[in-house]
Amino acid sequence: MVRMWTDLLRGLWGEHPIFRLVLGMCPALAVTNTAINGMTMGLATTFVLVTSGTIISLLKHFIPQRVRIPSYIVIIATFVTAADYTLNAFWHDIHGVLGLFVPLIIVNCLILGRAEAFSSKNTVKRTIFDSLGYGIGFTWGLVLLGVIREVLGFGSIFGMQVMPDTFYNWTIMVLPSGAFLTLGVLLGLYNMLIQRAESKNKVLHTVKTASEGAFTDESVY
């Protein structure tokens, strides 16, 4: 059970897809000019990560090593297309907003990256936790980028006006250059936080191993 949690948490913080692995930059830069765009893109990506990851994990002994990449791409593309049709048929309004981004999910290297690095080597159960972690991690990253750019660029959050009328919208924030500015600042802040946490952990870790020593439960790891 503990292993499931570490699988889940890894993508949420320690190996955050946007701020640590710097994967999936195309959607992270292109669609985050409003918070809602970021959120819908993140959730659609999560869906594709979990479903394609599950299938790839199920088929890991069936797919030969040499054709794994084309196989993964076909599986991912199938789920992306399925998501596109289903959204269009049953959630037409959301599709109106998201329709432009859905095909972009296929080329998101985060999905192929997880298929190659994790799903194809681990059990279905662990894959689901891992994919959920990365998916939700990706989603909150996109929402954070979207919120910052929307507040400064449109003066609103999720379409609700939050800035006073006297606030002059920074148009640059909703343009591509605003994506680079925001991402750069956030990457810097994130690395600063991680480095601080790591230097603290080092001290804690040495104290722990010295005191616990013999009580370490092997099964946990």
């Binding site: 069936f62 797919i63 030969p64 054709v67 084309p70 196989s71 076909v74 599986i75 593309a77 199938t78 297309t81 399925a82 049709y85």
Partner: peptide, 13 residues
């Protein structure tokens, strides 16, 4: 394997 995956994918879509 590759042909099978393509067929399953095509038919289900």
């Amino acid at each position: 394997v590759l042909v099978l995956i393509m067929i399953v994918s095509g038919v289900s879509l």
